[in-house]
Design a protein around this nucleic acid. Sequence first.
DNA 1: ACCGTCATGTAATCGGTTACATGATTCT
DNA 2: AGAATCATGTAACCGATTACATGACGGT
Lengths: 169, 169
Amino acid sequence: MSSDIRLTPTSYIVLGMLRAAGESTPYDLKRGVAASLGNFWSLQHAQLYSEPERLAAAGYVTERREEGGRRRKHYEITDRGRRALAEWLKETTDELPELRDRALLKIFFGADPAALAPRQLEAHRAKLEEYEQIVELGGEHLPKGVRITLDAGIASETEWVKFWSRLAG
Amino acid sequence: MSSDIRLTPTSYIVLGMLRAAGESTPYDLKRGVAASLGNFWSLQHAQLYSEPERLAAAGYVTERREEGGRRRKHYEITDRGRRALAEWLKETTDELPELRDRALLKIFFGADPAALAPRQLEAHRAKLEEYEQIVELGGEHLPKGVRITLDAGIASETEWVKFWSRLAG
DNA sequence: ACCGTCATGTAATCGGTTACATGATTCT
DNA sequence: AGAATCATGTAACCGATTACATGACGGT
């Protein structure tokens, strides 16, 4: 009966987290996302309540509600969900990401780079350090995919630090 | 009377384009955005029809409709619009952009990097060349802010080319 | 004349954000 | 015991995407 829905990146994030972590509540998902993925693809917590519902209605996950107490909702990925996820993982893409950097947008429209640079530089430095901390504290044991995205984050932040340093003069 | 609206990045893009180009139709805006800004912050063309309307209702721009023929709509920034734009340009921010890279998202969830790499590499290389073309053909004459964002794009694409090269092995 | 593409716009849908609310824990 | 924070969820709004449509124009 499952109504047909479009699967968005948000959908795959939920499916991916459920596959990795097993049965989870929206709050579990929230923490899971915040931990690592959230650094390069963050979600509003409300989406982690609504998206699993959407997925449940279409048969990609199952929903179980606690009887007593808090009546929390627990979600679990179904075979259909696994299949959809696996297919998506196999598909390659030539789609490129966009920078979508607000500070850069201001510069494009004529804002003073030297005025923007200090805070941006500071923020990027902090992010970079955070990533390097993660690596130091046992980055070798991270799953391969996670490690690679972490490397991407480090490369990217390193580049931004250079960029804003130049503008800070 | 102007109802109050929230100004989003989309709003500022419209205001910024209108300030730079003077009176424009949505189609003018579309071309303007596609030309340079669109490389790092793209918009659906429908937004360039609806957003000016929203802004007009709140007094940030004026709307004039052609009498005869196509009845196209022309928009022009108002003083209120200029003020809002100027203020936004002055505000600094420590907000960081997110990568939001779909290919990377797949890798995070366990997709095969070597499978994804070729197409991504190719696409990033093409984008990088495109940027370098722009620089060659008179990048010196670009407005300063535009030139800086272009540099950011080049730095970023260069980094991505390296990144995906490594994964392509 | 016809076809394809560019130009121009509206409408419907829906995902995402924001706001609101309350129950549990932990800390002082 | 009270304050602060974490946990958990719902509802409303609204911006963004998608789909649909038609008119103009340039080329064959």
